[in-house]
Design a protein around this nucleic acid. Structure first.
Lengths: 147, 147
DNA sequence: ATAATGTTGATAGCCTTAGTCTACAACCAT
DNA sequence: ATGGTTGTAGACTAAGGCTATCAACATTAT
């Protein structure tokens, strides 16, 4: 039940762009350096996010990566599904026809609930939320910091 | 984010035992036949469940597999964790020390929530629940059947 | 004893993941 | 226009995990 590095690095890369975007596009290689990922591998994560419109790219000198939408509009469920595919724990959840038992299978019902629970968490969290959480952790104001 | 066949087949095998246990131990090969899994592969799923006390085995002729506890006492979270390991989507959720960023990483907080959501579903479901659901689906009483 | 069962460890094929390499396309500054 | 800077795309590879299968073994009822 592990997320692959695509999902993990991808979300972190996205947050990195969001936090460093104000002064203009962010260089792919700077993201790579900050996030400890090879630039060449990072391209594979950035690319599908661009195709999906979540990121925007500018080639050439003075180029780089920026957000394609506002942070409020980017939920983690979108990101993870783009990079990892469906979060369904079993294929029959999305495609009942792959298994002849689907209609009567009670374990499938549980897997459906599992997917919904996962999507509940990821769908309720946006990039904006992560930015806020990040600021709280990085610069705790009086009374706002806990544990 | 897929469950491997171990978790899927394992839960189904367990339910199979629960439903067929009344007349005594269930033959491994019968489970295999009903669940469409090779008996040899099934052994590898059964074995850890026996070690964990969830199943009990009886060797020799007239032997077979039976439940090691009552169905109410067997939650799917136990089963899945035995067969698949932790349901944490990222290792740092269980072992923060594997990543130097753990204490400040906001994405980790999301992965923690994700694990909790998954465990919420699996922990709240017992083998008994599956048996009840199964009976409802298999023999709908008047008014109880839906869809 | 013997047949029926479960147990264990070794092994192998296959697929996915993670990552690199190379050539290319677009763009800005000058 | 040109050259350097940046992102794009796809082929390729190494490593590891998953999904089994096989064979030898241990235990038990009869």
């Amino acid at each position: 039940m592990r997320l692959s590095t695509k999902g993990r690095y991808g979300v972190r890369a996205l947050l990195d762009v969001a936090l460093n975007n104000e002064a203009g596009p962010v260089l792919l290689k700077d993201i790579a350096k900050r996030q400890d990922v090879s630039a060449q591998y990072l391209e594979h994560l950035i690319s599908p996010l661009i195709r999906a419109g979540i990121l925007r790219s500018q080639r050439g000198s003075r180029g780089g990566i920026s957000l394609g939408r506002t942070p409020e509009e980017i939920s983690l469920s979108q990101v993870v599904e783009i990079l990892e595919g469906s979060v369904a724990p079993v294929e029959c959840v999305d495609n009942p026809e792959v298994c002849s038992r689907s209609s009567t299978c009670v374990t499938r019902d549980i897997w459906v609930e599992m997917k919904a629970a996962t999507l509940g968490v990821l769908g309720a969290t946006t990039l904006k939320d992560l930015m806020i959480r990040h600021k709280r952790k990085a610069r705790p104001g009086p009374g706002t910091y806990s544990i």
